[in-house]
Structures are given as structure tokens and as C-alpha cells.
Design a protein around this nucleic acid. Structure first.
Lengths: 203, 203, 203, 203
DNA sequence: CATGAATGAGCCTTCATTCAT
DNA sequence: CATGAATGAAGGCTCATTCAT
């Protein structure tokens, strides 16, 4: 019992530090952020952080775990009982586009950047976030295909193409594409139509 | 005349340093790479680098310019007189997927990572690389639409969706997606079909 | 209470570092001295210095503050109840001439040199050391004038002339004037006579 | 003949470089000034400077020589046939105070600073500038004493006191003494009176 | 467990000087 | 003699990490 409380305390403290770290990382980026910055934001001493995290990179790991938890939570929110595929797809696409606003956006940038460059982080990122997300998407696509809502063709690759598109659009927005920024709200429907109907002539 | 030779010498030396930098960056990443590493790779003294580049970040700038030059050169290679849209689209898509192999891949990772995190770099990246690339794509889409090969609908956003998809797939591959890696060769045709025909039921 | 002890510890450490810095500066000069030199002299690590001082220049600032403290302490030592003006003036003049011996001399040189060249330092030097010293001298001159011991004429400028003379003599000694070096001990009385009686014919 | 022209050319070039150096030193200080700065100011290549001067310090040496030449030239200008000692002394004192205005002032600061800190420079400075100046002053004092214009007492030390006073006043002005700055014009007469008559009561 | 002072490795950058052309 | 690119030593400073209290 005591042990459990202890563990809860630890988990809380970890979360507290992680939130501080996420906040400062989002603001300044990973490398420019110092342990002292994080400690100050969290209102604790530098050394204390090392009682909960192995090193600075481990903080990013922790943040990624947190992101995974959030993502799962979010995914569960989507109403799965949609009948019309177009409407559902829009909702499905709207989700990641809207999730990454404000500080989340900045954090996405920072995490992505470091993941690109750090192999260890990359492995964890793939295993913890990307893979589950893709697995979920695949399951969905298979359901839809089974229900006759989409063609049962190259589902795995097409799912990857769609999710890559979403990630790419977010990145491109970050890069400063004014049109994307302006039309962000309309994207879900535009993308849903394109994905379902294709761009080619229909005749 | 002498002036031109001088300038050529300088351009050559710059290129030499840039290649060394690109090579080391690709191998170790941007931050872990020291100026000394690059100098050693280039076979020159540390200080010499600073006769050609303002600072370490400026090297990345230079690499991005180089990438732009290469991209333009590559783009020019695509045969523009294709009649069958499907075949052309495959070629068009195959290009970026194949360009980024080996060291290019690694470099893409490093540049992307730093661009994500450095606002100054981001601006240049967008202006020098992304924007021209998008402009070129838009022109292409408009030609196709004018030729009745694709629907004249939301061309700008759809072009962005397609290019984002490509960038996203490359990133996802980098992250370690085994399926993408395995099916990389088949991607162009899978994507072309999906883009042209859509995933929805056709009836 | 704890707080005070902490502060005392910090003050002590600062003083320790300052003494090390002063010693090395005096020996090698400001620019030729490296942080590592000072750290070695103080028996601490390089980085520790930066826990107490903003940068290298800040060390010189600290030294100047110390000098000010010492100067004030010294000034208080002069017996103010002298009746005979000549004797008092000698004591008053002897003071700065004797204070700057040995390492103090060298430090004076170094501080002066850097103050000459660094505007920020110059401001602090003037405010912290020169101005108070001049203010003290002015007060003294006014007392003497009020007591009828000296003429109440151009006191402010004359005080500046006298203090400038002292500073100049020290500098000239530093420059290598053999006569000054040889007669240094006799200077106070020679100067006192000259200041009080003038060089002109009296008749 | 050719040799002489050669030498004149060399002397001219040296002077040209020296003027450029003095100008930049005066503006930026000795250490912050780079050889490239001086070369740019002189409109020549970096390396060329080393054909005329051994190193950066040697440029300061050259400047000091130049200053000596100027000082001698200036000293010769003073009308030596003055009968009234007070008027002459005023002129004599006014000279250094007025000579160091504008860029001269700044250069004085820079040279002084470096001389303070560099033993080699100090030796030269003393031998080339200070010693001759003092010798000239001593000769003058002896003339005046012989003519019965001043007391024949401690002439050598008193001369040093007077010249130290002048140097000290200039320094103190540099440090930012507002009163000195404001009353600079009146200094010569105030000092002359003080030097001749003393500050003590005359009764 | 919390603290935060101490550590010291390490890096970017500058710049006086050299020397091949 | 002029040039200016190449050199490379050197130093101030940062900051992740440790550990005694």
C-alpha cells in the first residue's frame, strides 16, 4: 500500500517534470534547452531531475510515452459507429490536423527533429507511436473494406500513404506554407474527397 | 578572365567543403559533428572553412542550396511530353522516392531535423526548396487539368497533399517502417493508382 | 541564519577567486591571462568561476570593487586631527604612493590599462573609485580652507590637479623613471612643499 | 639615388600604414583591431603590412615613434623668448592639454593602455617619449632657475611632478570627470597660479 | 530523496602570421 | 614587393552530469 502511494508520488513527479520539459522544449527546442531551464520551470533543483530520468534524452523518451498515451486516448474518442464513410473519413483526418495546434505543434516539431537524428529515439518513436498508430489504421481500413466501403486493394500501403500525407501536411504547414495555413480547416473534406474519389477523370 | 578563374576556384573549394560537410553530417548528424570533423574530412584546416562559410549553420544553408540545384536538375530530366497520365505520374512519384537513397537519405534526415528547429533555416528551406517545388507541381497539375487528364478541382491543395504524402513516406521509411522499406519499389504504381482512382467503391 | 551562512560562503568564495584573479592578472596582465590560469591559481575548476562571475571582465569589475573597499578602509586610517597642514599633507600624499607597492603596483597597471580601453569598465571605475576619492579630497580641501590653512581658491580644480599628480607619478614610476624610483620615499615632503609654497620666487 | 627614392617610397608606405593603424586603433582599441581592419583602412593586403612591420605590436612602436616626432615638432613651436614666467608657463601647460583632442585623445588612451601592460613597449615609450620630454622640461626649469624666475629647489622632482600632473589630468578627463571636461580651457592658468604660488597661506 | 555547487570536457570561432603565386 | 588564402593554436564559455550534504 505504502509502496503504491510511493509509486503514485513518483509517477506524479515524473509527470510534473515531463510537463515542464515539454513546455520548455516546445518553446526553445531540445538542444537550446538546459536542464536548469527545465528545473526552473518545474520548480525543483537540477539534480532532482536525475532521480527520475537517466539523462536529457530520457526526458524526450518520457514525452514520447506521454504522447502515445494521449494519442490512444484521443483515438478512442472517435465515434466508430459512423455509417457514411465520407463523413467518418473526414472526422478521422480532422483529428491529427487539429490535435497539433499551439504548443503541441511546437512540441511535434522538436520531437520530430530529434527523432530524425537520434537512432535510439527513433526506435522508440516507431515502436511506441508510429507502429501502434499504423496498426490501428490498418484495422480500420480492413473493417471498411470488409464492409464494402472501400476497395480491398493494397490496404497496408494505402494506409501508410494516407498517414504519411497527414504527417507531411503538418510538416509542410510548419515550414511556412501560407495556403495550407489558410485552408487548414477545409483540409479534411478536401482530402476525404480526394482519397475516396481520386483525381482522375471519372468517365 | 582572371576573375572568373578566381571565382571558379572559390566555387570549387566551397563545393569541396560542402561535400565534406554533407558527408559528415549524414554520418553523425548536425550537432554531433564538429568543425574539426569537417575540416579533417575535407583535408583542410579548421579556419579555412570560415573563409568560405560564415558559421556552422551556414554550411547547412549551403547544403540546402546544393540540394535545390540538384532538385532543379532532376526535375528537368522528367520527360514532359507523356500522354498517358498514369505512366507519367508514376515516373513523377518515383523520382523523389529514388533520389533519396543511401547518403542522401541520411542527409535528408539531418537537414530536415535542423530545419524543423531553426527558424532561419526553415525560412530559407521553404523559399529555396519547398516553394519552387510546389510551384512546379502546381504548374504541372494545371497543365494536366487543362489537358483534361485530371479533375480541375482543388488543384493547389491536392498538389500539396500529394507532395506531403511523398515527404511523409520518406520520413516514415526513415523511422523504420519495414513494410515501406520492402515495398518501396512498388510504391510509385500503388500511389499513382490510388491518387488517380481513389480508394472508394467506383460503382 | 542559514541564509547568512550561505551568503558568507559565497562571499568568501568570490573573494578567493578574486584574489587568485588579481594575482594572475598582476603577473601576466589581463588579456594574456586565461580563465584556466585563474582557476588553477584558485585551485578550482574553470566552470566554477562562472558560477560567481559573469565573464572575464566581470572579474576585473570585482577587483575594482575590492580596490574601492580597500581604499575606503585606508582613507579612514588617516588621522584627521592634524593641526599642522604640512605634516598632514605629507601623510595624505604618502598614502597612495606607498599603497601601490609590489603586486598592488602591477594590479594598478593592469586595471588602469583595461579601464582605458573598456568603456563599461571605465564608467564603473569612475563611479566606484575615482569619484568617491575626489569627493573625499574635496571635502578635505574645504575643511582646510575653512580652517584658514590653505587659500580658498579653485579648490575643486586644485584638488583634481593634486590627485592627478599622484596618479601620474605612479604611472611615470611604472614607466621606468629611475629618479622617481630612487627618490620615492622623499616624494611626500617634496610635493607637500611644492604644493603649499609654489615654485615661484617668494619675495 | 635610386636607393634614396626607394627608401623614401618605403618611408611613405610605412607612414601610410601607420596612419591607417593609428586611425583604427583610435577607433576600436588595440586588441579589438585586426590586421585585416588596418589593411582595409590602408587599402592594401594583409600580408603587405608584414613587409613593413614585424608584427602587430611593432605597429604601435611605429605609432609611438611618430608621436615622438610630432611632440618634438610641437615643442619647437613654443616661443622660448617669453619674459614673464607666468605667461610662459600657461602656454607650456596649455600645449599638452590641447594637443590631445579628438582622435589624438583616443589614440593616447590606446597607446597608454598597451604600454601599461607590455614591458617591451613600455621601455620604448619611456626612452622615446617620456625621457626626452622630461629632459626638455628639466632644461627649461634649469633655465628658469638660472634666470631667477623660480626657486632652484628639487627641480628634477618638481618637473616630474608637473608633467605627471598633466598626464594625470588628461587621464582623469578620459575617465569621465565632468568638471575637468567643463573647465578644461581654464586649466592652464589655474595650474600656473597653483604651481607658481602654491596653495598655502602667503602671510 | 532533494539540493545545487562543482566539475571539466569540449566546441565554435577568431586572427596573427606565413608563404606560394 | 604585393597578394590574400591557408593555417592552427588558443580561449572563453556552456552545460549535462555528479555527489557531498
Amino acid at each position: 500500500m505504502t509502496d503504491t502511494i510511493q509509486e503514485q508520488m513518483i509517477a506524479l513527479r515524473r509527470k510534473h517534470i515531463l510537463e515542464a520539459a515539454a513546455s520548455v522544449f516546445a518553446e526553445k527546442g531540445f538542444h537550446p534547452t538546459t536542464i536548469k531551464d527545465i528545473a526552473r520551470e518545474a520548480g525543483i533543483a537540477d539534480g532532482t531531475i536525475y532521480n527520475y530520468f537517466k539523462n536529457k534524452t530520457d526526458l524526450l523518451m518520457g514525452i514520447m510515452h506521454q504522447m502515445k498515451a494521449n494519442a490512444l486516448q484521443d483515438a478512442a474518442v472517435i465515434p466508430m459507429d459512423a455509417q457514411d464513410i465520407r463523413g467518418f473519413l473526414r472526422t478521422y483526418l480532422r483529428h491529427p490536423l487539429m490535435a497539433l495546434r499551439g504548443e503541441h505543434f511546437a512540441l511535434f516539431r522538436v520531437v520530430n527533429a530529434e527523432v530524425m537524428v537520434n537512432a535510439e529515439l527513433r526506435t522508440v518513436y516507431y515502436r511506441e507511436i508510429l507502429e501502434p498508430m499504423i496498426a490501428g489504421g490498418e484495422a480500420l481500413f480492413e473493417q471498411w473494406a470488409a464492409a464494402g466501403l472501400i476497395q480491398p486493394v493494397e490496404l497496408k500501403l494505402r494506409l501508410r500513404a494516407v498517414s504519411a500525407m497527414m504527417a507531411g501536411l503538418i510538416t509542410q504547414n510548419i515550414m511556412g506554407d501560407a495556403l495550407l495555413e489558410a485552408e487548414w480547416e477545409r483540409l479534411p473534406e478536401v482530402l476525404a474527397d480526394m482519397i475516396l474519389d481520386g483525381m482522375g477523370k471519372t468517365d
